[in-house]
């Protein structure tokens, strides 16, 4: 008697193969991702301009304080006077690369009182975005303000406090600003680091040094050009 030949494995039907396909199994994930993604794009398109506007409004609100100092800004507000903040952009070229800074020119009745520069850089946790106030000739810092930061709560986020930011006021722009640990800053261009947050303090100082180095020339030139 002839032995029975072993049966060949049944070929998988096309339908079955399709059912076991990874991509087909993930159809719900894929289509939901597509759907949610486009929904989010819609949300961003609707709300994005509003969020930008909020940031610009905050910047404008801070201009008097950054240029005149807190007391100066208060006096001006009490006198019922307002500062005009003229938005401009300054393009700086170095090493073949172009970087654009958004700069606000603070004007009172046509007279230039100073500049406010928006600048950003990498902090300890995330991007730090800040505003830097300069006098009309770009020779002195008149104030800084932190617009956005996600530094460690309790340590790095102390960079937003008035006391720490106040250290930068009336520092000259001729020299780089240096961060000193341990609270012994006494040189004309030294500031104390936030205790336990040297990296955050350095990050802020680096952003300022870079912006000052880039913009000192162009702003001073604009200043001598006149109105």
């Amino acid at each position: 008697m002839k032995p029975i030949e072993p049966m060949e494995p049944m070929p998988q039907s096309t339908l079955e193969r399709l059912k076991n396909n990874n991509i087909i199994q993930a159809w719900l994930v894929l289509s939901l991702a597509l759907f949610f993604g486009s929904a989010l794009a819609g949300v961003q398109m609707t709300l994005g301009p509003k969020i930008e506007e909020n940031k610009i409004n905050e910047t404008r609100e801070k201009v008097p304080e950054l240029v005149l100092g807190k007391e100066g800004a208060q006096q001006m507000a009490e006198a019922g006077e307002t500062l005009e903040a003229l938005p401009e952009s300054v393009v700086v070229e170095k090493g073949g690369k172009q970087s654009t800074y958004s700069v606000f020119e603070a004007l009172k009745g046509g007279e230039r009182l100073g500049w406010v520069v928006k600048s950003s850089g990498q902090g300890y946790a995330d991007k730090i975005e800040l505003l830097l106030g300069l006098d009309p000739a770009a020779e002195k810092i008149t104030g800084i303000f932190v617009l956005e930061q996600k530094e460690t709560p309790g340590l790095g986020n102390k960079i937003v406090t008035d006391a720490w930011r106040g250290q930068f006021v009336s520092k000259g722009t001729a020299q780089r600003i240096a961060v000193v640990k341990g609270g012994n800053a006494d040189g004309p261009n030294e500031i104390n680091a936030v205790t336990g947050a040297t990296i955050s303090s350095k990050a802020v100082t680096d952003i300022i040094n870079l912006a000052v180095a880039d913009l000192k020339g162009p702003l001073a030139a604009k200043g001598s050009e006149g109105k």
Partner: peptide, 30 residues
């Protein structure tokens, strides 16, 4: 829902609505 893909879908859904909430707050309660 497929059992082995359910967590992915939960996370996707949650992340979407969290992003909407975040953008909304940034726009209206800055």
């Amino acid at each position: 829902l497929k059992p082995h893909l359910r967590i992915v879908i939960f996370t996707l859904t949650i992340a979407t609505f969290v992003t909407i909430a975040d953008r909304f707050l940034a726009a209206y309660l800055y």
